[in-house]
């Protein structure tokens, strides 16, 4: 399939995806340090093309909701990596002054008003944002980024029923990051251990919601599906369900070397499923982009990330007495 994105947009997609990759690698690296608060982070490695592809298809007025695995969503929406990392470290310069942390990170100023870390917690809330848009006649979409685990929760069914009944402008992006061994393009996977249905899109279609499954590691496919879904949403066509299929990062491979895109990747996952390497390889094969340009981009992004880490580390914690603030409007 020819990517619908022109080359400069693919370049921008790669920039966002690389930023997410370097951000998440940083989180992974520092998560074992004593100054790292909380238990662990839920990383977005392997799903960068989904976050970037969705974000690039949206408009600033669209309202985006995420989950506990939100770093890639806020970054692809344009969040400053320093403030995003400061939030994860509980610092006063974070997007929520350290109140949200890794699990609940959001960026209200980027129209990401709140993140619930409860599986399914944000889904009906996103439907509510879509109700506001329809009720007030606003030309904007509500976007819910969620993992496949949400479909194991009862609230999923209540929420999509309401979204379909009321024909609300919502894009339901199901990030299925547990895709099994079979080819991602095949239509009949073996099924999952924790969900009785084999085809996630069938569930949405049963509720009358148009559904499409895409390769979540292919930024062009994700972008294309999201553009169509947004068009449907703002033209009164109601909700769309997008299943973005990715395979989970096996972990433990350290920092990604971008030259693996045209060299020797260390694992089959990097060869087949790594969204960043796939897009870099695609660009490298095109006539307009050189390996040097790609490595320079990576170098700039890595420099941005180093500065972001320094900013977050240097930022102060909110003072203890601030614990009593903002209980009430």
């Amino acid at each position: 399939m020819t990517p619908p994105l022109p080359n400069e947009q693919l370049w921008e997609a790669l920039r966002r995806m690389l930023l997410i990759r370097r951000f998440e690698e940083t989180c992974d690296a520092i998560s074992h340090e004593p100054y790292f608060p909380g238990h662990h982070t839920h990383l977005y490695i392997g799903q960068e093309a989904t976050g970037a592809g969705v974000a690039m298809a949206l408009e600033p007025e669209d309202v985006v909701f995420s989950t506990h695995r939100n770093h890639g969503h806020t970054l692809s929406r344009g969040a400053d990596p320093g403030r995003a990392l400061a939030e994860i470290l509980g610092k006063a310069t974070g997007y929520c002054r350290g109140r949200a942390g890794t699990l609940h990170g959001c960026a209200p100023e980027l129209n990401m008003p709140y993140n619930s870390a409860i599986v399914g917690g944000n889904l009906p809330i996103a439907v509510g944002a879509a109700l506001t848009a329809k009720h007030q006649g606003l030309s904007r979409a509500s976007v819910m980024m969620f993992g496949d685990g949400v479909m194991e929760e009862g609230v999923f069914y209540e929420s999509i029923n309401l979204a379909s009944l009321w024909q609300l402008p919502i894009i339901l992006v199901c990030e299925n990051n547990a895709w099994p061994k079979e080819d991602i393009q095949t239509s009949q996977p073996e099924g999952r251990g924790s969900l009785a249905t084999k085809q996630l899109v069938n569930v949405a279609e049963t509720f009358g919601i148009p559904a499409i499954a895409v390769d979540g590691a292919d930024v062009g496919s994700v972008y294309d599906a999201t553009v169509a879904a947004r068009q449907r949403a703002v033209s009164g066509g109601g909700p769309t369900f997008i299943e973005a299929r990715t395979r989970g990062w096996p972990g433990g491979t350290g920092k990604t070397d971008l030259s693996w895109a045209w060299g020797e990747p260390p694992t089959p996952w990097h060869r087949r499923d790594d969204a960043v390497l796939r897009l870099a390889a695609e660009l490298e094969r095109s006539a307009t982009t050189s390996q040097k340009q790609l490595l320079e981009l990576d170098s700039r992004v890595s420099q941005t990330m180093s500065e972001a880490l320094q900013f977050a580390m240097d930022s102060p914690y909110p003072p203890a007495e601030e614990a009593y603030a903002n209980v009430w409007p």
Partner: peptide, 25 residues
């Protein structure tokens, strides 16, 4: 006035989302 399905969790959540984006449910 929105009549709802029998879905308390869903429609209360819808109210939360509607409230944070500009309505007063």
């Amino acid at each position: 006035v929105y009549a709802t399905p029998i879905a308390e969790l869903g429609y209360v959540g819808v109210a939360v989302g509607a409230a944070m984006t500009g309505l007063r449910p």
